[in-house]
Design a protein around this nucleic acid. Sequence first.
DNA 1: AATGTCAGCAACCGCACTGTT
DNA 2: TAACAGTGCGGTTGCTGACAT
Length: 293
Amino acid sequence: MGCRSSDKPKPKPKHRKGLWSPEEDQRLRNYVLKHGHGCWSSVPINAGLQRNGKSCRLRWINYLRPGLKRGMFSLQEEETILTLHRLLGNKWSQIAQHLPGRTDNEIKNYWHSHLKKKVLKADQAMEEANTSSDNLEPNSPNKLTITQTPNYESLLMNVEKSPTDTDRLVPQLSESPKQPNRSSLPKLMFAEWLSLDSFSSLSEAIMASKDQNNSSFMDNFMQGCFLNEGTLFGNSEYRNSPLNDASPEDMFSPQFKFECHSSGNDQFVDFSSGEDICSEFNMKNDLKYIYEY
DNA sequence: AATGTCAGCAACCGCACTGTT
DNA sequence: TAACAGTGCGGTTGCTGACAT
């Protein structure tokens, strides 16, 4: 953590507030994609923005960062939020780790605007059902007994042990037994892959896949990024980004390398081989891509 | 058509935590 | 070890558009 002194902003420009203009978005996006964010407080200065670093960080995380989903929450996402909220309470960032492409802010807003009411209604209905059934004979066949207690303990163990492994968690919440078998290897989404915590498991998986001399992991990973989620290149937010000039094939061609940051151990990964190609790099960036490698 | 009300969402604020000096 | 700075998180605010009156 912390900036080099040369990165630190000189005092104190007037900071703009309120909604971001498309031009500001473009500036921030271009800057972060090109240089990485490094020290957030220096980003607005270097990017020519009259915002504070915090505001830039938030805008990037919640809106500009690649891999974000847009649009309605699916039923499965809703169920995941409901279950995790019962488990974790208002730990929005932890809940967000299990919903690839969704931000904590988005989930929090969705909770307050939609789910909270639903839960209240459901609870009320349950309460009414219980009080009315209390008036019935104890052994009446009409008596309603609430016995639905999901196996939270095992769920919680997964949450604690493996907070970013969505695929292993989510099926326990809602997967029906009829669903087709998936690969035993985890399917990682782009946003998940960007997450600092998940990178080590990703690189392990890449290495494992490489060791086994098969491509199933990378196949799954690519599908997760570009086919299953389908938002990275379909989202209009990225139409003006340099990323848009690239097809999925391009992205995995030798011309593209991604830099990932994971808890002090930054790595460049060659997508085509899965190799850590430049481990001596140590810049604090979530993501940076490099042309003409 | 004008005004009021409400819901949804983006962004801000303040606190807590962590790393650095 | 204390002070400071950067970052992350959750609560809250305020803007905007949709709908009602």
